[in-house]
């Protein structure tokens, strides 16, 4: 299942590495990454493939968002269709 992981937080070294490790631990394949730092604000968008079924997706999404909270990062994991439908005709 293709999903979009967005990460927003105060910039510091290791955010990308942290999120990427979290993904690797869960067998999530990263397909594309863009990241940018505006003043102090780190934002990153990852397109990923999450294996298996919906149940797994929900568990993984919860875990990642929780892991983000512990690191003071706002992480969202969302099905990519939402962006396709809202921003393309």
């Amino acid at each position: 299942m293709r999903a979009v992981i967005s990460v927003v937080g105060k910039d510091r070294p290791g955010i990308l590495a942290f999120v990427a490790t979290q993904c690797a631990d869960r067998n999530i394949n990263i397909v594309d990454v863009t990241q940018k730092v505006l003043q102090d604000l780190f934002t990153m968008i990852m397109i990923v493939d999450i294996p298996e079924d919906l149940e797994n997706f929900l568990i993984v999404a919860d875990e990642l968002e929780k892991a983000g909270e512990d690191q003071n990062l706002k992480i969202h994991v969302m099905h990519e269709d939402i962006f396709n439908s809202m921003h393309t005709i």
């Binding site: 979009v4 967005s6 397909v31 594309d32 934002t43 968008i45 397109i47 939402i82 962006f83 921003h87």
Partner: peptide, 14 residues
């Protein structure tokens, strides 16, 4: 794969 626009994604989240 469709290339997602970063600003669009952040707009939706906002």
């Amino acid at each position: 794969m469709r290339r997602h626009n970063r600003d669009n994604i952040l707009e939706t989240i906002r």
